[in-house]
Amino acid sequence: MNAVTTPAKLHDCRDAFVSVLERMAADNSKIVAVCNDSVGSSKLGGFKAKWPERLVNVGIAEQNMVGVGAGLANGGLLPFVCGASCFLTGRSLEQVKADIAYSNANVKLVGISSGMAYGELGPTHHSIEDFAWMRVLPNLPVIAPCDSIETAAAVEWAAQYEGPVFLRLSRVGVPDLLPPGHIFVPGKANLLRDGDAITLIANGTLTHRMMKAAAILAAQGIEARVLNMATVRPIDVEAVIAAASDTGAILTAEEHSTFGGLGSAIAEVVVAEAPVPMKILGVPGIFAPTGSAEFLLDEFGMSPDAIATAAQALIARKTGRA
């Protein structure tokens, strides 16, 4: 079985990001990193030590940072624009729209410390709106890897993809879930565990919690399907329809507002293509109270136990026992 029975080693996905970035930059002189004074929080210290001239630090000026990224791409370079996701997406939203997405600039936007990674710092530093803000923009794939393996694979994919990309990374440690050598395919969910009672869909820091919830359900004789859906746009329509028709209920969880994120993207497909009972777990449209990311995820009903309970309620609804 896939059940996680012993505490797995946790990885900070930023390490996987910079490791791949530096490996690619060694072979590709067009790769540059752009940041807003965020050398430390983006873990770009190693990159800076190796290629100081290729680290373009614009200072604390996110609108300029994104515009400069678009300009560097126009000049033939391959920029990875890195900053805390709350500022990169919120402060620069119009630049992301006009300079990057609408202009179809070959710029990789890397939102660091997304979700509630800056938990105790409060809602100004939470980035639980970024899926919603980014996924309405045409031309812009929106990707939230679930572990260090998927992060590395997604960064490699982004570098060779001709066009804008938004990568949403966390700093909160997560266990590896995908097999070594995993190849990232945009818009394709990964089946982590199969079952027919319900489908649990998540990405980023929530996927491993879904796996733990599935193990709890399995102990009660309930087999849940678990999908890791890193790509929020384009959403994997085929996998969502299959989940609805094969399991008859879908539960989503995300480190994001319940408005406009992964769950919403899935609901758009479910409602139109395959209506089944569904529930969206996330931050329920409020500014979060003080607490660490892990505390807040538990607080908002996304502990493995609470997810399992929500799944049982949804299964009861589908079978008419609620």
Partner: peptide, 16 residues
Amino acid sequence: HGLPVAVGIAKAAKLT
């Protein structure tokens, strides 16, 4: 929007 992008284009020329 134009000036930040122009800064990036000019900076790219400096790098390349």
